[in-house]
Design a protein around this nucleic acid. Structure first.
Length: 114
DNA sequence: GAGGTGACTGCGA
DNA sequence: CTCGCAGCCACCT
């Protein structure tokens, strides 16, 4: 009998990240907490790493670290790729970090609100 | 089955 | 203010 493997840790990360509206950003800790693991911030990044192999596309560029710094920009292929994507969404980037990040910060817990 | 890794976070010196 | 360490959980070899 098949279990809820589709509802595993990773899948929840993908769903939450995909729910992020354009022009908004979130943090790994927020997503981790939203899925019920506030300390598993690392897993969120790991899940996004696998997201490249998942479909549909996951807006991992909308997920940044607590400082609003584009820590995962290096995994997008090119450094300007993530920055370009965010600017394309309307998010301003300066020195590889989000500008007014707390202003455009999107809290999944408030939107999901289990 | 066990060990190592990792796109993070928070606190202490 | 800057640097370092420990905690966290799932995937990969």
């Amino acid at each position: 009998m098949k279990t809820d493997s589709e509802l595993s840790f990773f899948s929840q990360v993908y769903e939450v990240v995909r729910l992020i509206p354009a022009g908004r950003v979130t943090t790994y800790g927020a997503v981790a907490k939203a899925i019920g693991s506030p300390g598993a911030s690392r897993m969120v990044g790991w899940a996004l790493n696998q997201s490249s192999d998942k479909m549909p596309w996951v807006p991992a560029h909308r997920v940044v670290n607590r400082n609003g710094l584009l820590t995962g920009k290096f995994h997008f292929g090119t450094d300007d790729k993530m920055k370009n994507l965010l600017e394309q969404e309307g998010v301003k980037i300066e020195d590889n970090k989000v500008v007014d990040m707390q202003n455009i910060f999107w809290n999944p817990i408030e939107e999901i609100e289990f």
